[in-house]
Amino acid sequence: MKAWLAALLFAGASGAGLAAATVEGRVALPKTRTTPVVNQRYEIVAKSGVLSTNPPVAVVYLEGDFPAPAAGSVVQLQQKDLAFVPSLLPVQVGTRVEFPNLDDTYHNIFSFSPPKRFDLGRYRSDDRPVPSQVFDVPGLVTLRCDIHEHMRALILVLATPHFAVTDAAGNFRLTGLPAGRYKLKAWVDSRTTHERPVELAAGGILRVEFP
C-alpha cells in the first residue's frame, strides 16, 4: 500500500515538474542611480578610482501559500572593490547569507532594519568561518558598512521560493512554477511594488509587463 502511495506521489511530483508553468516579461525600471563617491579624505595612501555604476534592477516573485524551505540553504553576498556584490539579493525566509570580504581592507557590515538587526564587526578575507546571518523574518534589510559610508546593499527576504532578479533592462523569467492562482509581484524599490493576479496553467507560458 505504502509503495503504491509513494509511486503515486512520485508520479504526481514528476508530472507537476513536467507541466510547470513559466512567467516571463519585463519590469519598467527607474533611471540609473548616481554612482557613489568614495570618501578618502584621510586615506592619503589609498586606491582611488571610479566605481562601476550599479544599474537598478527589480525582484519579481510569486506570492502564495508555499511550503517552508528546506533547511540549510546558504547564499553569499560579497564585499569586493569597496562594494557589495550583488547590491540587491532576494532570499527565501530561513536562508543563511554569508558575507565574505574579498578586499584587502576591513569592512564592517551592519543593519538597523527591523527584520534583521546586526553588526558583524571588522573581519578579514582569510577569516573563517565566513561571518553569516540567518534571515528568518520577511521584509527588506538594508546593509551598510560602518567604514565605507558609500557602501549599501539590500536583502529582500521573501516567503516564497519562486523569485528572480531582472536584468538591467528589466527582463525576467520565472520557471518551474506550480499551476494555480497567485499574485505576481515586482519589487522595484522600497516605495514601489507592482502587483498582478495571475492564473498559471500547467505547462503554459504567461507574459506579464509591469509598468
Partner: peptide, 29 residues
C-alpha cells in the same frame, strides 16, 4: 526612525552629482 534611513539615502542621491559616463563625480555630505 526607519523612514529616516530612506530619507537620508534619497538625500545622498540628491547631493551626488556626476558627469557623462561618470568620469567626474562629486558629493556633498
Amino acid at each position: 526612525a526607519s523612514a529616516a534611513e530612506e530619507s537620508f539615502d534619497r538625500l545622498e542621491e540628491l547631493l551626488t552629482f556626476s558627469g557623462q559616463r561618470t568620469q567626474w563625480r562629486a558629493r556633498l555630505s
